[in-house]
């Protein structure tokens, strides 16, 4: 899992993320949960950052995941969000 700090968000939900002194740009959507803020930390599989992969995607979508259901889904699809007030376990969704 990589930890990425949210450095900026523009009006089209384009996020600037910082991880280990590198900057990444993703469009992110979060369903059924509050929008993250600048300074929050995202955690997800490091393969998402592999920009040279033919399967690389710049738009990622997430929804909250019930911890009890975590075993049912691919480890690759489990993510997290750390905010000032709360930590969220997330599931990546597609489409």
């Amino acid at each position: 899992m990589k930890k990425l700090k949210i450095r900026a968000i523009n009006k089209y939900k384009s996020y600037v993320l910082e991880c280990e002194n590198k900057i990444y740009y993703f469009t992110l959507e979060f369903y059924d949960m509050p929008e993250p803020k600048i300074g929050d930390i995202l955690l997800f599989d490091e393969e998402y950052l592999n920009t040279s992969s033919p399967d690389f995607v710049q738009s990622l979508y997430f929804e909250p995941l019930d911890e009890k259901k975590a075993k049912e889904i691919r480890k690759f699809d489990i993510a997290g969000l750390q905010t000032k007030d709360k930590n969220y376990l997330l599931r990546r969704i597609y489409g």
Binding site: N10, Y12, S14, T27, P54, D55, F56, V57, Q58, S59, D77, I93, Y94, G95
Partner: peptide, 27 residues
């Protein structure tokens, strides 16, 4: 995606059933 620059994603009819469905045709 909207904005000054645009990035492409091609979605698949299987969606999450297959690996990397949002990169159909390698985007």
């Amino acid at each position: 995606t909207k904005g000054n620059t645009n990035t492409l994603s091609i979605k698949n009819r299987y969606n999450h059933t297959v690996y990397a469905p949002d990169a159909t045709f390698g985007n």
